[in-house]
Simulated scan of single mutants.
Amino acid sequence: MSAGTVLLGTLLVGIGGGAGSALRWWLREVGMRLAARRMNQGDVRMKPWLTLLANALACFLLGIAVARLGSAVSGAAELGFLLVGIGFCGGLSTLSTAAMDVVDLIRRDSFAISVGYFLLTIGIGMAALWIGLVIAS
């Protein structure tokens, strides 16, 4: 990869990552506001499930990106994968927030729910990735 291609790749990953991160934040904010309206309060119990939604969506889109663009390609497909697969899907998904959600659930004396959430996050993420691969293939 030439220096110019590395610079372009860095820019594409940054743009995609920023867009994915913004969508993740938006999903959580809108979800919390909808929960607050429906439950007449800000329900912190919704936060982990909104993170799970963002992670599942990111895995699904990553499956489509891998099927359509490949993950180890060159040329325009490589640049597209850098933008969508690495940047956007990487920004949309968030292991650190999911890990913090597990800690918060444990702190609220919800050990069984935190274990279930952790296992669901992994299982649903992998299933969503597979479904994206199958649909796009």
Rank of each mutant, 00 (worst) to 15 (best):
T5W: 08
L7A: 14
G14F: 12
I15S: 01
G16D: 08
G17H: 05
G18Y: 10
A19Y: 02
G20Q: 05
G20S: 06
L23N: 02
L23I: 06
R28K: 12
E29T: 10
R33Y: 04
R38C: 05
M39Y: 13
M39K: 11
N40R: 14
N40E: 14
D43M: 01
V44I: 12
R45H: 07
K47I: 07
P48L: 04
W49R: 14
W49Q: 10
T51K: 12
L52Q: 08
A56I: 02
A56V: 07
L61M: 13
I64H: 03
A67E: 11
R68D: 04
A72R: 15
A72G: 12
V73Y: 10
G75S: 07
A76E: 11
A76I: 13
A76W: 13
A76R: 13
A77P: 05
E78V: 06
E78N: 14
E78M: 14
E78K: 14
F81G: 00
L83R: 01
F88S: 02
F88I: 00
C89P: 13
D101N: 15
V102Y: 09
V102F: 10
I106C: 09
R107K: 14
R107L: 06
F118E: 03
T121S: 15
G125I: 05
G125V: 03
M126T: 06
A128Q: 05
L129E: 01
L129H: 00
V134D: 11
A136M: 07
